[in-house]
Amino acid sequence: MPRTEVGRFSDALFLVLSSLAGGSKHGYAMIEDIVAFSGTELEPGTLYGAIARLEQRGLIEPLPAEERRRPYRITPAGVEALKAQVETMAQVVSAGQRRLRLLEGS
């Protein structure tokens, strides 16, 4: 999920994929879930911009609508993309922690 392809939606894509990794959800439930696990409240325009991009890339797929709400679920390709993103972030976190320890130790 290179940042250049997704612009201001890159963080939103990650948050939506992470949310759907916990089970299928519709838009409102995703916003609530994302607030709960990350403290970030996505606005509807950003949320649906991310949903459209993820759907175009085959990383999530829509399920049959329940009245006016449509749930989405993560696809196997989405799981792979999320894994790759999480691994990258884990490396960044690990490097950041090491460097902070060095700073604090010096």
Partner: peptide, 29 residues
């Protein structure tokens, strides 16, 4: 996405940030 977005907008209070975000979202779309 119109129907589900409209349903979502009916479920939560709209702030200035919501309007701005929707405007940018419309431009992006």
């Amino acid at each position: 996405y119109g129907d589900e977005m409209a349903a979502l907008l009916e479920e939560r209070p709209a702030t200035f940030a919501t309007y701005l975000d929707l405007f940018l979202g419309a431009l992006d779309a």
